[in-house]
Computed example of a mutant assay.
Amino acid sequence: MNDRSAYASRLPADDSRDHLMVQVAKLYYDIGRTQAEIATDLGLTRWQVGRLLTEARAEGVVRIEIAPRSNRAAGLESALQTRWGLREAIVVPMGGVTDPDLLNDGIARAAASWLTALAAKPSMIGVSWGRSMAALVRALPHGWAPGLEVVQINGAAALQLADTRSAAVAEAMAQTAPGSAALLPVPAILGQASTRAALEADPVIARALARAKAAPLLAFSMGGVTDRSILCAQGYLTPAELASLRAKGAVGDILGRFVTADGRIADPDLDARTLGLPLEHLAGSPVTLALVAGPEKHAVARAALTARLISVLVTDDTTARSLLEP
């Protein structure tokens, strides 16, 4: 069974069906995919795709344009998919909200709806950590994916007690599913590259990283190069170190790895001390779900898209518009 076929099963019967219906309708009417291509991409049968399209027309979801009944900006979504070659884009209209916590909650609910709307829930998911990921866990309904194996894909051991929920994402998601968690009990950034190499050679850590690489669906968020950075809040980096990264062209971090505008590593020495999946693994993963919102993350979101690290993007409308600019 391939990675996509693992999602093929009975269509959802609750509100999650609306999200799947919108996704299929966009691909068919706006993006111009055939029903066979959509079935392959989404792990559905052609009969299921046809049924969803029929229902979309019958229920008024598809008229002259796609009009999702959920809180989504379908026009921006289709434009993002076309511009960046995404499998799916979910854009949440936030009405000009700039508060980071409200933005995180908005996109987290949308990402949770996408996960619960999958035709069949994944048996394994790899996750990063941070405020957006913690919000995603809070938005997931209890019992959404019984038996799910959640694997941590980058180091997250908290160095400070502040905001500990943001570092415990894998365990919290496993409890919500409910399922099991394979943790990576190491810091995100180490003091020396030799320490990282020694830890990666340890059998326990090596097994955890192997499980992370085996996950067919990876979910992660991104951080800006500001004092609000979760890596700064957790004690991994100082404001002065963040300023040094900005001077080297860093626009944000992905899995704790700071990148430039073209998606390249900004500081190789720092990256050599960062423990977790390398960014090239994201580029080759079957499904990568990225959550990103807020002005300070516009540049890192564009960098991730430029490097082809994202296949499913969940964002706010302001960020979406910035990503459609030349």
Rank of each mutant, 00 (worst) to 15 (best):
A320C: 13
A172K: 00
R10K: 15
L242P: 05
L76T: 11
A79R: 14
L279V: 01
L190F: 03
A303F: 01
S229H: 04
L103I: 08
D253F: 05
W129C: 13
A215F: 01
M21S: 13
A304T: 02
D15I: 08
P178K: 04
R207Y: 01
G235I: 07
Y236R: 03
V292T: 14
L76R: 12
Q234I: 03
T54Y: 08
I31E: 11
Y236E: 06
E325F: 01
S5N: 13
A74I: 14
W144F: 03
A208L: 00
Y7T: 13
D267G: 01
Q35W: 08
I125G: 04
P178A: 11
V127D: 00
S128Y: 03
S229A: 07
R69A: 14
M173C: 02
P187F: 10
R109L: 09
E37Q: 08
A58Q: 14
V225H: 07
C232M: 11
N2Y: 10
S229C: 10
I107K: 07
L52C: 12
V24W: 07
A304G: 05
A117S: 15
S322V: 14
G179E: 00
G95T: 10
D163L: 07
H19W: 12
A210M: 07
W114L: 13
L44W: 06
R321N: 12
V169L: 00
R57K: 14
G224C: 09
L255W: 06
A145Y: 00
G130R: 06
A6N: 09
A208Y: 02
G60W: 06
E77L: 08
T226E: 04
D41I: 09
R87V: 13
A250D: 02
A247V: 04
L148Q: 02
V169I: 05
G106M: 02
K297Y: 11
L282E: 05
E88V: 15
L102H: 15
I64D: 14
S311V: 08
T226R: 02
W47E: 15
A304P: 02
R51P: 11
M173S: 10
G252C: 05
L20V: 13
I38N: 10
D105Y: 09
Q160F: 09
H281I: 07
V151E: 00
L279A: 03
A172F: 00
R72F: 02
G276I: 01
A290I: 08
G223N: 06
S229R: 01
L140Q: 05
L115W: 06
A157M: 10
P146M: 00
G235H: 04
T226L: 05
L80S: 04
I310D: 05
L44T: 06
A290E: 10
P203F: 00
A67K: 12
I64S: 15
